[in-house]
Design a protein around this nucleic acid. Structure first.
Length: 420
RNA sequence: GUGGACGUAGCUCAGUCGGUAGAGCGCAGGAUUGUGAUUCCUGUGGUCGUGGGUUCGAUCCCCAUCGUCCACCCCA
């Protein structure tokens, strides 16, 4: 690029030619979420840094090295949000929303200082969904079914669903001890990263990609065996529900998530079509987080999906946008040009849904028709000297065969209301 | 943060074993002074990412830097 001014690394402009795909995902998601009774919430992009430290976890990569943090003029440390759950929980506590069950969703940009890669950006967009105050497995199931419906409506297939249960806090603690003991006995065979995590975040070693570490992990004690009766039943009921709903899934006992606040259910929707960043949607239960952030103990489940990743999949699937315009108004000659704006206004009054672009800048019939064609409009509306004299508007089909016709205003309005 | 590939026209790319660059598409105009998309003709196109070094001379070689892409890591 020869320009000296350019967008910040890993942060991308979304250009008009691609915006239709964003609308498609956003509108479909909004429609699905409304259908399940979820309400949208919007929170600031910036929060006190401490909020993320206390929720995501001090020793996670996100908090340790990926946050955009800065001091404001008061000397308070603030951060661009790296994810949405923490803000959502903070807002819910702050406004007393948690006195009753709440189903909330949000969307917007998130920021993480990572090395950009396919499907991974420094500013990226998520839609997140959170359900508060509901402890039963039915709500975990509802969230997963909701996502499955969304994929269906978007025409996306080929995802696989992986689920796991991390157990309650005490179950996990007991397992953690055993896992550390096991891993420590094989310490000499672990890769450096896993060795570092052995005592800080041993569960993360389970989903290491390192081949040799994976071999060790294969022989590790299973988290599933450490689940208590209640946790196990909770998990089984989700699996049963998925079976009954006909949603295929795979229990992956090595699925853990990178954020500290998860307990019990975790799940991921994964695709093989995006290279290394295959997780399209992920989430889980976080029953302890609300209390941890100063609220009353409140069970909660949620997930987030990456919009850039979904949109790239839609592009791969060959999604194209609809022709955006119904009509393009061609006006040649001074009197016609003077009359065109008023004609356009009257048409918009008469046909509120009409998508009409009026030519601007004058020019010959030829050049205006070229514009009309490129605009993608279905019809050209023609206003020239002759039409003006006769009090009619020419209507020409740009996308199909058909004679150019001359219609009076009322006829034209009727035609544009019910074209074709 | 680590490793690798790559930055040439608005876009996709070619090219110069070092002598300041081409194609296709696009865009503008014309063939048709009231009709687009097809066809034909003409025109428009670039500080060869940026900065420095070597050289008589650098888009090409060297170094740095910024950016893109891929993988690791991590995650949506």
């Amino acid at each position: 690029m020869s320009k000296h001014l350019q967008a910040i690394r890993g942060m991308h402009d979304i250009l008009p030619e691609r915006i239709a795909l964003w609308h498609c995902v956003e509108d479909t998601a909004r429609q699905v979420l409304a259908g399940y009774g979820y309400a949208e919430i919007r929170t600031p992009l910036v929060e006190v840094t401490d909020l993320f430290k206390r929720s995501i976890g001090e020793v996670t990569d996100i908090v340790e090295k990926e946050m955009y943090s800065f001091d404001d003029r008061n000397g308070d440390s603030l951060s661009l949000r790296p994810e949405g759950t923490a803000s959502c929980v903070r807002a819910a506590i702050e406004h007393g929303l948690l006195v009753q069950p709440q189903r909330l969703w949000y969307r917007g940009p998130m920021f993480r200082y990572e090395r950009p890669q396919r499907g991974r950006y420094r500013q990226f967009h998520q839609i997140g969904v959170e359900a508060f105050g509901l402890a039963g497995p039915d709500i975990d199931l509802e969230l997963i079914l909701l996502t499955a419906r969304l994929w269906r409506l978007l025409g996306l297939s080929g995802f696989r669903l992986e689920i796991n249960s991390l157990g309650d806090a005490d179950e996990r603690l007991a397992y953690r001890e055993q896992l550390i003991a096991y891993l420590a006995s094989h310490a000499d065979q672990l890769d450096a990263d896993s060795l570092k995590r052995l005592h800080t975040n041993p569960l993360r070693v389970l989903d290491s990609k390192h081949p040799q570490t994976q071999q060790i992990v294969a022989g590790a004690p299973s988290l599933m065996d450490h689940l208590g009766e209640e946790t196990r039943t909770h998990f089984e009921r989700i699996c049963r529900g998925l079976d009954d709903a006909g949603v295929a899934y795979r229990v992956n006992p090595r699925l853990v998530r990178g954020l500290d606040y998860y307990n019990r259910t975790v799940f991921e929707w994964i695709t093989d079509d995006l290279g290394a960043q295959g997780t399209v949607c992920a989430g889980g239960r976080y029953d302890g987080l609300v209390e941890q952030l100063g609220g009353r103990s409140t069970p909660a489940v949620g997930f987030a999906m990456g919009l850039e990743r979904l949109i790239e999949l839609l592009e791969l699937a060959g999604h194209t946008s609809e022709p955006p315009l119904d009509a393009y108004l061609v006006a040649v000659g001074e009197p016609a040009q003077a009359a065109a704006p008023l004609l356009a206004e009257r048409l918009r009054d008469a046909v509120p849904a009409l998508r009409l672009l009026t030519h601007s800048g004058g020019g010959s019939f030829k050049s205006q028709f070229k514009r009309a064609d490129k605009s993608g409009a279905r019809y050209a509306l023609v206003l020239g000297e002759t039409e003006l004299e006769r009090g009619v508007i020419g209507v020409k089909h740009l996308r199909e065969e058909g004679e150019q016709r001359e219609l009076g205003f009322d006829e034209l309005a009727a035609f544009l209301r019910m074209p074709g």
